[in-house]
């Protein structure tokens, strides 16, 4: 199957052509670049929301920085980590715009697969993939709400 990239782009860098020939790392990289900024932002807000006294109380209790981080800071932001992971995963999972140019025969995302199936007129298959995709997203969203609830209780 021919590469979906224009030849000039492929030739322009060894790195890029390497990615295109073996498209999985390219998809992973692009999705990372797309999802990480939002995730980092969300984590930053959640860390800022931890009352500084919670960590200071660790110090006045006699704990060193490493113990405070391990026993207080990390557990407090852990639920947010999970939540950010799921959110990014859901976004990546149903992404089309960034991945459609990068998929290969052996490395297809479900969202792109749906488009291809629809183009071929195989609408039953499209629907099956769509249902599966929706269920996965739904399950993950529920999981995220559950984690959020835990964050609030801890709040």
């Amino acid at each position: 199957m021919p590469s979906p990239w224009p030849p000039s782009v492929c030739r322009s860098s060894k790195l890029a052509s390497g990615f295109v020939q073996n498209t999985l790392p390219a998809i992973v990289l692009v999705l990372l670049i797309k999802e990480v900024p939002l995730g980092v932002q969300m984590l930053k807000t959640s860390i800022l929301q931890i009352a500084p006294e919670l960590e200071e109380a660790g110090g006045t209790s006699g704990a060193r920085f490493s113990m405070i981080f391990r026993r207080i800071t990390l557990p407090l932001i852990a639920p947010m980590f999970g939540s950010v992971f799921i959110l990014s995963f859901v976004a990546a999972f149903r992404d089309i715009s960034a991945t459609i140019l990068l998929v290969g025969p052996n490395t297809k995302t479900m969202a792109v697969m749906m488009i291809e199936l629809a183009e071929e007129g195989r609408f039953e298959a499209t629907a099956v993939v769509g249902v599966v995709l929706s269920f996965v997203v739904l399950a993950l969203t529920l999981a995220m709400n559950w984690l959020r609830g835990r964050v609030e209780i801890r709040g």
Partner: peptide, 14 residues
């Protein structure tokens, strides 16, 4: 702080 022989109760309890 952690090597000072003190303990503290914060206004917000923490």
């Amino acid at each position: 702080t952690n090597r000072r022989d003190i303990s503290m109760v914060f206004q917000s309890y923490a």
